[in-house]
Simulated assay, not measured.
Amino acid sequence: MRVLIIGAGGYVGSRLIPALLEDRHQVAARARDLHKLDAFWWGDAVRGVELDATEDDSVRAAIAADPSL
């Protein structure tokens, strides 16, 4: 399954992603600063997504760029 995690660098997201990867899900990760995802061991195993969840146009653009989300 493909999963989009918004807040990937936060407390819950950063702990959820390893469990999803262990279960062989494809993970797209959203964080305020995508470069911060590199600090996690799983940073190379996810696809970084730029979007602002409070902006409808930003969410639409992210989904349009990757309809699998």
Results as ranks from 00 to 15, higher is better:
34 L>M: 14
2 R>Y: 06
54 T>M: 03
55 E>S: 15
24 R>D: 06
58 S>D: 10
61 A>P: 09
13 G>A: 08
67 P>W: 02
55 E>L: 15
62 A>I: 03
37 L>E: 13
12 V>F: 00
4 L>T: 03
42 W>H: 07
34 L>A: 12
3 V>T: 12
58 S>E: 00
22 E>P: 03
14 S>P: 11
43 G>Q: 02
36 K>H: 04
14 S>I: 04
6 I>Y: 14
42 W>A: 04
23 D>C: 11
52 D>Q: 02
55 E>Q: 15
23 D>K: 12
51 L>Y: 05
58 S>Y: 13
13 G>C: 10
27 V>A: 04
16 L>W: 13
17 I>S: 07
60 R>I: 05
58 S>I: 05
7 G>L: 00
2 R>F: 02
6 I>N: 07
49 V>A: 05
54 T>W: 12
10 G>C: 09
55 E>C: 15
2 R>C: 01
17 I>W: 06
65 A>G: 12
13 G>V: 07
53 A>Q: 05
53 A>I: 10
57 D>V: 08
29 A>H: 00
21 L>K: 08
58 S>L: 01
57 D>Y: 09
19 A>C: 12
25 H>C: 04
1 M>L: 09
58 S>V: 07
27 V>W: 01
66 D>N: 10
43 G>P: 00
52 D>F: 02
29 A>M: 01
3 V>A: 11
7 G>H: 14
5 I>T: 09
37 L>T: 03
9 G>I: 08
11 Y>G: 06
31 A>L: 01
31 A>V: 08
46 V>G: 07
47 R>L: 11
67 P>T: 11
22 E>H: 06
28 A>Y: 00
17 I>E: 02
7 G>S: 09
53 A>D: 05
1 M>T: 14
7 G>Y: 12
65 A>W: 11
68 S>Y: 10
4 L>D: 11
58 S>W: 02
48 G>F: 07
54 T>I: 12
2 R>G: 03
59 V>Y: 03
21 L>C: 00
64 A>F: 09
